[in-house]
């Protein structure tokens, strides 16, 4: 590659990485209690409305859960404790995040496994294609190519 291309790419990379760095630093972790409560509410489903979390739902029980989360956060309970409390109170299917233990953990593991296997299969296919690439050219092939060239 020539120098100008290198320099141009360097500039592009500096702008890109600089932007990403600024963006990553600017995002502060949820520090205040209100932010923590907000994040928890976003992962608890409203028990009576299909698929909405308690932040989005106006159902009375969602309003009640929001208040309970605020209270539990104020008491200084950890995220896990609050989630467990909600599961006891309203059933384990209010937790929008499937647990990472027991049979439920499969929903996290299986996709990773499938991804690894399929990438492996693709790599294997490329290796095999590469090995079989030296195709033999028969006299017949050469004749066809020559005939086509002459036609041109």
């Amino acid at each position: 590659m020539n120098t100008r291309l290198w320099v141009s790419w360097l500039c592009v990379m500096i702008v890109a990485c600089g932007s990403l760095l600024v963006a990553a630093v600017a995002e502060d972790p949820p520090a205040t209690e209100a932010q923590r409560a907000y994040e928890i509410k976003a992962t608890i489903l409203c028990p009576v409305c299909d698929g909405q979390n308690v932040l989005e739902s106006n159902a009375p029980v969602a309003t009640a859960i929001r208040a309970q989360v605020d209270e539990l956060v104020e008491q200084g309970r950890s995220d896990e404790e609050i989630r467990a409390w909600m599961a006891r109170q309203y059933g384990s299917d209010v937790n929008a995040i499937p647990p990472r233990t027991g049979i439920a953990s499969l929903v996290w593991i299986v996709p990773v496994f499938v991804a690894v296997v399929s990438i492996g299969a693709l790599v294997f296919a490329f290796v095999r294609w590469r090995a079989g690439r030296e195709l033999e050219v028969s006299d017949e092939d050469l004749r066809i190519v020559r005939a086509l060239r002459e036609k041109k």
Binding site: L45, I97, P98
Partner: peptide
């Protein structure tokens, strides 16, 4: 078991 696989997943 009742469990939900929601948006965060």
């Amino acid at each position: 078991d009742q469990l939900a696989v929601g948006r965060p997943y």
